[in-house]
Structure formats: C-alpha cells, structure tokens
Amino acid sequence: MLTGLKGEDPLDLLDADDEHESLNDPLLQDEGAADPATVVDTVTELFKSMPTYHKLLLSILESCIEKQRISVVIESIDEVLRNNFSVYKAARFCELLEQAGALLKVTEEGTQYADAKAQPILVEEDGLEYFKANEPPEAFWVTTEEGRRFLEADDPLERFRDNLENERVYHPIFTQILLLCSNEKGRSIEELGDALDDDPILQKPRMYARRFVEILERCDALTWDKGWKTTGIGQLGLEEIERYDKNG
C-alpha cells in the first residue's frame, strides 16, 4: 500500500522542550492543424532561441527522417550530451521539436500517437475491481514535412558567412582558431585562451577566445570531441575568410 511519505513529510514531531521555536523555519501548446508556413517559422524560432543546440536539434531531425524508436533517439542524444553538459534532458529536445511542429510522435504503424492512448487495465482482487497502469504503446519520432524542409534549407556554410559579415574585425581570430584546431587531438579552451587572449584585437572591447569558439561551434565549423576540432565546414570556412578578405 502506498503511503507516499518516505521521509518527504512537511510536519515533524516537536521535542518536548522545543515548543515553539522549531517552527522558524517552455509551454505546451494545443495541437491543431497549423499552417505549414507558420510551422516553419516556429521551427526557425526554436533554432534561433537555442543557438548552442543547433547542431543537436538538426541531428535529431536528420535521424528521424525514417521513424525512429524514442528510446533509440534518446540514447543517441544522451551520447552527444555526455560531452556537453545541458540543463535539458534528452527527451525535452524532442518535445521542443514536437511543439514547434518539426517532429511527430507516431505509433509503429505510423499513426498519430495521440490517438493511440493506452487505457488502464481492470483487475479483480478479493471480489473488488481495481485499475492498474497499462504499458504505453511503443512510440516513435518521425520528422514532419516542415521539419524536413527546415533540414534541407539549413546551410552551415551560409551561417558561417553571415557571421563573417557581422564580425569582420575578428577574421584573424577565427582563422587562428580554425588553424590551431586543425590538428588530430584538437585544442582545449585553455590552450586557445593562452594563444589568443593577449591578441591586440581582443583588448578593446575586451573579449576572449571562448566567445569565438562558441560562434564557430554554432555554425558547425568546430566540434567538441575531447578537444575542439575544426570540421569540414571549418576548413571550407578558412577558404571563405581568405576569399572574403581578398575581395573586401
């Protein structure tokens, strides 16, 4: 029988001589037939509001092009989060994508999961009827049409170019970071700080290498794998910077 009170009770016994002094003491949305254009906007908004998780969110959409067991998706997100502390639980990322309209929870047959609600089991014990919780039907995530469109439209190099435009004065810093991180082991943030934090460009306004690492990570030019490493996009990014600076 449940008591629900395993050391989690608000009241306590008063000691006999301790009479009075011891008393001192992102929202769910309704589902509906949303306008596809609005859905894409909502997905875009979600990605904009979570810039540090851009890559992770995209990888979820990508992995669910074919419907995928929720447990498998969660496992792969947990794997990514192993090296990236997050206040969000793996399932929360999927829920946020679902709320934005980019993911849909479906059954094994591909029908909407919301329509497949499990009902409790009625059991009889000692002549009395009881309800017991049922096992929920197996759930899968699948990327929606809008999610696919967003995924296809995403261009990390374009995001890299946007950042170049906004950060012209810091191009040498981006270049140095991408070159330093092009080795096999990658670089720690401390190593990058030692190499760059005294650079005259970063003195006024005072900035640190960490900021630029974050920007590069958001456009997939850097990735963390026991060290910051330059990705393929990062290598293309180096060429972009060179071309950009040459052409003004």
Binding site: C94, E95, A118, P136
Partner: peptide
Amino acid sequence: LLIVTYLSNIWENSLNE
C-alpha cells in the same frame, strides 16, 4: 481513473511534463 490513465501513457519526458 484520470491518474491511472496518465500513468498508462508515461514516456521519457513525463517527469519533466
């Protein structure tokens, strides 16, 4: 009935929900 129906449909994010 409402509580046990909810419990019959819990998933990975139910605690957060």
